[in-house]
């Protein structure tokens, strides 16, 4: 991650020492998330959108839905595509091609967590619910993430923002006018008045555990990330199953340490998911009131 100036050795030992005694620089414990706020429906042209502020990290996510043909070999599934961009406002290095590597890293980590296996099992959304006409027409959901400002933990923030954007998303009703003949393409009409929401109950949240010294912390700031020895991002859903895992660089990890990190991530995610859902409904009701 990006840190403007280097840290002095005193600052480094302050960070490491604080983590060792469960008291971080901003007063949090090792397994505490920063407070976050969500705003939804910020992009009217998108089917769903949300903005998340997590400490100094600021990200926007949007969902756009389009009709298309189902993936080859899986006529009863819809499609998801995830893409992240890092705006130069977050850091001057992101201008032009500078942010490309980070964007690709984040996109791939999100794809790994949300797309599930090659057969479509374990995906963040029940892909069968995106089918309009089996074998001919389905919804393709484009998830786009934009990083506006970075103070660490971009991946978790993006996953929360995308869940919020998806909750905010409504798919227009599709009326099939013809196309019962299996040879022809389907003709359809979009009803822009009626919308069906998408079921987000299976949507996972990503918890990144950053290992500093012997301990792991959750929701690291940019400074803390610069001191990491290793980081593992685990996507956990409401049921407590792991939906994806990515090691994000750093030194080697013992398998037992990895399993321990997974169990910490699971524990933290359960409370996190409840607070996310609460924030999202609060944001939606704020939006409805306006």
């Amino acid at each position: 991650m990006v840190v403007g100036l280097g840290l002095s050795s005193a600052e480094k030992s302050y960070i490491a020492g604080g983590i060792a005694v469960d008291l971080r620089g901003d007063g949090r414990g090792r397994h505490h998330f920063r407070d976050f706020s969500i705003d939804t429906s910020i992009i009217p042209q998108a089917n769903g959108s949300a903005r998340l502020r997590l400490g100094g990290t600021d990200v926007i996510a949007s969902v756009k839905a389009e009709l298309c043909a189902p993936p080859p070999g899986r006529p009863h599934h819809g499609k998801l595509e995830i893409n992240v961009e890092c705006s130069p406002t977050a850091a001057p290095e992101f201008e032009g091609r500078g942010g490309e590597e980070l964007s690709m890293d984040l996109s791939r980590a999100l794809q790994r967590s949300f797309l599930g296996g090659a057969s479509g099992a374990g995906a963040a959304i029940d892909l069968a619910s995106l089918v309009v006409l089996e074998g001919k027409l389905c919804w393709m959901l484009y998830f786009d993430g934009l990083v506006l400002s970075s103070d660490g933990n971009l991946l978790d923030a993006l996953s929360i923002a995308m869940k919020a954007a998806l909750s905010n998303c409504g798919l227009p009703k599709v009326e099939i006018t013809s196309g019962t003949n299996p040879e022809d393409d389907a003709d359809f009409e979009l009803n822009e008045e009626e919308f069906t929401p998408v079921d987000t109950s299976r949507f996972p949240v990503i918890v990144t555990l950053t290992k500093v010294g012997k301990h792991y912390i959750v929701d690291a700031t940019a400074e803390e990330e610069s001191q990491m020895t290793a980081a593992v991002s685990v996507a956990v859903n409401k049921k407590g199953s792991i939906c994806g895992l990515t090691k994000r660089g750093g030194t080697g990890l013992d398998p037992s340490v990895l399993l321990d990190m997974i169990s910490v991530a699971k524990r933290v995610s359960q409370t996190l998911i409840t607070s996310i859902d609460a924030e999202i409904s609060a944001a939606e009701s704020r939006h409805d009131d306006q």
Binding site: G73, R112, S113, L115, G116, G117, A118, S119, A121, G122, V232, N237, G240, S241, I242, C243, G244, L245, T246, K247, T251, G252, L253, D254, P255, L258, L259, I262, S263, K266
Partner: peptide, 29 residues
């Protein structure tokens, strides 16, 4: 191409330390 989930691991064989790991799909602990 038909998997429901996958695991990929790169391991340092003598030290038994994982240098890279990814999981996709749904997994219980």
């Amino acid at each position: 191409s038909q998997q429901d989930g996958s695991v990929f691991i790169a391991l340092m064989t003598s030290r038994r330390e994982i240098t890279q790991v990814t999981f996709t799909g749904e997994w219980s602990s």
